Amino acid sequence: MDVVPAKDTAGCAARFAPERPGGAMIAAHVAQAGVGRFRVDRLDAPQVVLAELPGNAALRGDPACLPPDALDGCAGFVAAPAEFLPVLRAADPGVAAWDRLVFELPADVGVPGSDAVLLGAADAPAIAAFEADGAWIHETWGSPAALAASGLARGVFVDGRLVSIAATFYLGTRYEELGVVTDSAHRRRGHSSAAAAALIADIRARGRVPVWSTSPDNASSLAVAHRLGFRPSGTGVLYALRVPIPVSS
């Protein structure tokens, strides 16, 4: 497949319109954040578009036009219409569906004040040193340094140590989807809610709508979303391609 030049990414993102919360925002993030890439079956009038981020991908178009080797080496969570399932199974017979719940924060829902700090470039080492099971928080930015430099993350520090991070996991034009991680030794102390509340204020100040997605079995994530006032707005599915579906703790 051909890699689309950076100057043409907006046209590819338009193939995924309208922008919706959840995995469909992968394409918007590629276009807005400048991370990842778009690939197409042909540059002139493409029939199928693949948006790729580290560990995440999305597909739109005609599955029959996807080259047989297009997904070689691709591993992660794929957002795609159900008609792409046969080609995903051809690439990985063990591909599995990961159900998602999607939430939106209504404009009239207030969030508590928070002293979570805006993370910057100097905080890249602290993000990189976060415990391994929280490394996914910077996955869609490509690196801890890229997330730190984005200006789209808030953090809670305890005794000089970064213990909770809320970050824009997907950056869209209308929505920003939050991702939140908290160090295992500091959970159930309100740090996730504090970091997320500060980020929500930032998102609203940017004129976008805060959204949240998680799996039905992730009780901790669901509890934070509920605590902050998020309301259900839909469901979705991601296909786990060559990776296991995460087990919620």
Rank of each mutant, 00 (worst) to 15 (best):
L66Q: 15
A80K: 04
G73M: 14
A82T: 02
C74G: 00
P81K: 06
A79M: 03
P81N: 15
A80V: 00
D62W: 13
A90T: 06
A97K: 05
C74T: 13
V95R: 07
P67N: 10
R60C: 14
P81G: 13
D69I: 08
P93H: 08
A90H: 07
L85G: 07
A70F: 10
L101C: 11
A79H: 09
A82H: 10
R89D: 08
L88G: 11
A79E: 03
W98N: 06
A82G: 01
F103R: 14
E83F: 10
A64V: 05
P86R: 12
G94W: 06
D92I: 07
V87F: 13
R100W: 01
F84Y: 12
P86N: 10
P93C: 03
G73R: 14
L71R: 07
A75H: 14
F103D: 10
D92C: 09
R60D: 06
C65S: 10
L88Q: 14
A79T: 05
P93T: 04
F103S: 10
D69L: 14
P67G: 10
A64R: 14
G61P: 00
A75R: 15
P86Q: 04
P86A: 10
A97S: 05
P67D: 15
V87Y: 04
A90I: 05
P67Q: 13
G94Q: 12
V102F: 03
A79P: 01
V78D: 02
L66G: 15
L71D: 11
A75C: 09
D69P: 08
L101I: 06
A82F: 03
G61D: 01
V102M: 07
R60S: 08
A82Q: 10
P68T: 08
E83H: 13
A80P: 01
G73V: 02
A96E: 02
W98C: 02
D92G: 02
A91D: 15
A97P: 01
L66R: 12
V102G: 03
A70H: 05
R100V: 04
G94Y: 07
A64G: 04
F84C: 04
A82M: 06
P93Q: 04
A64S: 14
P68E: 15
G73I: 03
A57G: 01
D99T: 04
R89Q: 14
L59T: 01
A90R: 09
D99S: 02
L88H: 13
V87L: 03
V87Q: 11
D92N: 08
A57F: 04
F103A: 13
W98F: 06
F77W: 00
P86F: 09
E83T: 08
P63V: 11
P86V: 10
C74I: 13
A75T: 10
A57L: 06
E83W: 13
A75F: 12
V102N: 06
G94R: 08
A91V: 13
V87E: 04
R60Y: 03
L85M: 15
D92Q: 05
P81Y: 06
V78H: 00
A64I: 02
L88D: 12
L66D: 14
V78E: 01
A70S: 11
C74A: 09
A97L: 07
A82D: 07
C74E: 15
P93Y: 08
W98D: 10
V95M: 15
D99K: 05
W98M: 14
A97Q: 09
C74L: 15
P63R: 08
A96P: 00
F103P: 00
C65D: 15
